[in-house]
Design a binder for these strands. Structure first.
Length: 617
DNA sequence: ACACTGACCGCCCTCTGCTGGCTTAAC
DNA sequence: AGTTAAGCCAGCAGAGGGCGGTCAGTGT
């Protein structure tokens, strides 16, 4: 939005003919389906006084309570709120700035005069009533003026655009937006505004902190009525703005616009260092921290662990330090421990029983050969060479793993390794819909529905997850339930699910066949082959050719950062990925977990300060 | 006509917290 | 050699703050 300053003088205004201007700019967004809130008439309530009214006194009483809650604030010199409160009781309030234009509020009336006014109001006075609305007044000229408000005539036309207005003051304000003149200057800061209303609102937001609109349900207070209405939707759950591409509904237009980026693939926020793009500004902000030398740290107050994010610390504490409903016994001795962390630390003490310990690090081995191989990592020697590719390894086990994973099926492994891109990048791209239309979105959703990603089911909130770990984490974080998934899980083959997965995808058919074999212990190599193909296929599905081409070129040129030397870890990781693919995505084993609701723990986490309501303060 | 006030709509931003994929160390 | 746990990090939605601009109404 452009910033403008202008004079408020009506002398600069020229009146010319114009047409009506349509300022509707959100026509592409689904309008509110049913507007439950009754629109209040704009402007001052009829027959209200510019002087302080009973309404204002009620508000004062409420607000005084609000202010008294904030006694820790500084004195009135430093705190405009208290200054405002003090001023309200004695007289002029909005005496903002000598430079501002005749900007003083009328003196507040004493209670007695208000009563008198009320008493006068109660007298039966002959009133004139508007024939178009319920407006009443005792004065004929006021009614005549009011009748103009029902007229659509807009005689005052802007010289700079096609808009026209009913009154000169409206035109003046509008012209000021063209000229950029902002005559209403804040007394407390350097901000200035085009209209007096903007100034009042600014002062309330930034300086006096008066919040006239209060939620009856939770006490939330805000400067603007529209904000209160928006807030009330959080109580009612009303979400009038529907996404045309999915079932998401938003309580306001901004969230819907933000959400639509999921479908359009728009990523307006780009990292200046690595050029990665993000859908939300805060994602970029969080990402930038990863480029910083000094990263934020959230140390755990229970153990030496340090997390990079507050949410991760919260998860860590829930996971590691939450007191268990029953003490956790050590399986090597008779001791019990209150939480997982202390049990784990205790478990390390049993390592002392291991005979072969490294003198350079904490590594310990069960055999002398393992320790000997481990010492190669300290010496920097790699005495074990692959006979196929010549790659050298420090440990026998590493070479064995390399041969098994890399050369057992040379053709398929090479293909996969060459085409593999960084998995984190792939994960990011998996969320993208680049240039999608409705059909593609539908396919995507169908695919999601057809695979077995949702086999992990929360029995408390009915949510679905793609793995036991994520389900476990969800339950710990959201429901605060402690449990042992793997003691209680119950594997169950769901043939119906498998039937549903037989869509047009030939890979799926093959996978189901070979997955059955996998369950029976057959065809490991063929399963690997299928999964190599699956990975490639998913790759193709998730990335358009233009996006893929540079990566392939880089690989072929040999300068691709993403190309991975087939080390033990990378091969092992790829194998793990394939295994996960078999287990989670394409084999229809429904894993159901029964959570013992008796293990629900109290939701007390004194170590984390949840500052949810920033407005308290 | 002018001064003043408030409702209304919209836009953009930030903070917050949950979710889930990926990596890696530990087991 | 395989599995699991835990941390890292991107994605994304909820909620609220702040402001731009406009319109409408009332008192003087």
């Amino acid at each position: 939005m452009t910033t403008r300053t202008s004079t408020r003088s009506t002398k600069a205004v020229k009146f010319i003919d114009s047409t009506e201007y349509d300022d509707e700019d959100l026509d592409k967004i689904t309008p509110p389906q049913n507007k439950t809130e009754e629109k209040k008439p704009r402007g001052r309530p009829p027959n209200s006084s510019r002087n302080q009214t009973n309404h204002d006194e009620e508000w004062d009483a409420r607000n005084e309570q609000h202010v008294s809650d904030d006694d820790e604030r500084s004195d009135t010199e430093q705190n405009p709120t208290k200054k405002f409160q003090a001023n309200r009781s004695v007289g002029s309030v909005y005496d903002f700035n000598p430079t501002s234009r005749k900007w003083t509020k009328s003196t507040i009336q004493k209670n007695s005069s208000v009563s008198k006014t009320n008493a006068n109001d109660n007298k039966s006075i002959e009133k004139l009533m508007c024939q178009y609305c319920n407006y009443t007044t005792a004065k004929k000229y006021l009614l005549q003026r009011h009748l103009k408000s029902h007229s659509t005539e807009r005689p005052h036309k802007c010289a700079y655009c096609d808009r026209s207005f009913k009154t000169t003051i409206q035109l003046t304000n509008h012209v000021n937006t063209h000229l950029g003149v902002k005559p209403f200057q804040c007394k407390f800061c350097a901000f200035s505004f085009t209209t007096s209303g903007e100034l009042i609102r600014h002062v309330r937001y930034k300086h006096t902190l008066e919040k006239p609109h209060r939620c009856d349900e939770c006490g939330y207070a805000t400067v603007e009525l529209s904000k209160l209405r928006r807030h009330i939707r959080t109580h009612t759950g009303e979400k009038p703005y529907a996404c045309p591409h999915c079932s998401y509904c938003s309580p306001d237009t901004f969230k819907l616009k933000r959400h639509l980026r999921v479908h359009t693939g728009e990523r307006p926020y780009q990292c200046t260092i690595c050029s990665f793009r993000f859908t939300q500004s805060n994602s970029l902000k969080a990402h930038m921290l990863t480029h910083q030398a000094e990263k934020p740290s959230y140390p755990c107050s229970y153990c030496p662990s340090v997390m990079a994010r507050k949410s991760d610390l919260r998860y860590h504490i829930n996971k590691q330090h939450a007191p268990q409903s029953e003490p956790l016994p050590c399986n090597k001795c008779d001791e019990d421990f209150p939480d997982k962390y202390t049990l784990r630390m205790h478990g390390k003490t049993h390592k002392g029983q291991t005979i072969y310990s490294c003198t350079h690090c904490e590594f310990s081995a069960n055999t002398s050969q393992q320790l000997e191989d481990h010492m190669n990592t300290h010496r920097g020697t790699r005495p074990f060479q692959c006979s196929e590719c010549g790659l050298m390894f420090a440990a026998r086990a590493d070479l064995r793993a390399h041969v098994t994973r890399t050369h057992r099926n040379t053709s398929t492994t090479t293909t996969t390794t060459m085409n593999r891109r960084p998995q984190r990048r792939a994960a990011s791209l998996n969320h993208r819909y680049i240039g999608v239309d409705d059909d593609e979105i539908g396919n995507e959703q169908n695919n999601n529905n057809n695979n077995d990603d949702d086999n992990y089911h929360c029995s408390i909130c009915q949510r679905q997850f793609t793995s036991a770990r994520l389900l476990n984490r969800h339950i710990s974080a959201v429901h605060e339930v402690k449990h042992n998934l793997y003691d209680e899980r119950n594997y169950q083959t769901n043939e119906m699910e498998r039937e549903n997965n037989n869509n047009n995808n030939n890979y799926d058919d093959d996978i189901h066949d070979y997955a059955d074999d996998e369950l029976e212990g057959n065809n490991n190599d063929q399963i690997n082959l299928i999964n190599e193909n699956l990975i490639e296929k998913n790759h193709d599905d998730n990335e358009d050719e233009d996006d893929l081409a540079p990566i392939v070129e880089d690989i072929m040129d040999g300068d691709d950062d993403f190309e991975q030397i087939p080390t033990i870890k990378s091969v092992s990781s790829a194998d793990q990925k394939k295994r996960q693919t078999i287990e989670q995505k394409d084999v229809s084993n429904i894993k159901k977990y029964n959570i013992d609701r008796n293990l629900i723990l109290s939701n007390e986490d004194e170590k984390i300060d949840y500052d949810v309501f920033g407005f308290n303060g």
